[in-house]
Design a protein around this nucleic acid. Sequence first.
DNA 1: CTTCCTATATATAACCG
DNA 2: TCGGTTATATATAGGAA
Lengths: 183, 183
Amino acid sequence: MAHLLGRTSMGRQRIEIRRIDNKERRQVTFTKRRGGLFKKASELALLTGASVAVVVFSEANHTYAFGHLSVDAVLRSYAPVPGEAAAAAPVPVHGEDVDLHWLRIAADEIGAQVAAEQARMRGVAAQIVQAKAGRRFWWEADVDALGEAQLPEFVKALKKLRDNVGRHVNALLAPQPPPLLLQ
Amino acid sequence: MAHLLGRTSMGRQRIEIRRIDNKERRQVTFTKRRGGLFKKASELALLTGASVAVVVFSEANHTYAFGHLSVDAVLRSYAPVPGEAAAAAPVPVHGEDVDLHWLRIAADEIGAQVAAEQARMRGVAAQIVQAKAGRRFWWEADVDALGEAQLPEFVKALKKLRDNVGRHVNALLAPQPPPLLLQ
DNA sequence: CTTCCTATATATAACCG
DNA sequence: TCGGTTATATATAGGAA
């Protein structure tokens, strides 16, 4: 076409970092860059031994996540409960038995995560919130607070949700194999 | 030095994507790539309008996070409470008043996040866990459950923590200006 | 929505202050 | 531990399948 006289491609063009107006271009860029972002995250984790988690929600409300060791293991942040000393307990490291999980689901459909890790954690984390009207939200609490009776059921429910979301999470929880991308 | 005869630099060298043995190099690479990852995340969000969250835990257990619109707003996934219909409430979209927040702190020191968003959310989310010994953990709950008495104090504590962590979060919560990097 | 291809814009491994 | 410089390895915008 008239565009390329001689050359076979215009090559990469510089663009401004602002919302791409054209819908389809925006979509293509989203897919390409999402992949690049996950790759970078993967490399960072692999090269430096850091734990990395990336969660992306597309405009279409699709959920994409990457995690090494597992999204949740990373997201599950820590924080000594406000006002409470972060009792430095001899926490085992990167372990085998990841028995617990955390979960998330996209509003309109799904999108989820769950997982656990014992590594590095010492304190626990916190929070939630929401301001407006009748919305519901969260709040972190001590597991113990759940009581031995409720916990099992809760975990069970979470696992079920996880399964529905797909085997994505399982892949992440797998052993050594290079971290993969979540749909 | 004998290394560079003529040239002034060896330029970027190709490296294998596997743990960098040399500790200092690993540290330098961590810092550089962490910045690059956040930048990419920022661009993805800006270019495509997607919500992106990135959380990184260094080997030294430092926490770094990036989020657009705010880490938590993204991480705070949704999931109708297990067993409870996700009452499709007419949730306002991406809004102005983000009055609540969520927080996270790195075990040994800090690292935090907070935020809220009304966008897309309809349901609430879920959980956590931990299996082993005396570790403490979380669990999400309905804000209402906190009670009007405790909530204010809790939020207060969180805000204080947030402030200590820096104005980073505030930057993220800001209006249009390009999303920035945390820490 | 993913993928291929080419020409460039960028990210960064080494090194130095 | 951090930045700044340079030469190169990579990521990608366009265009099209």
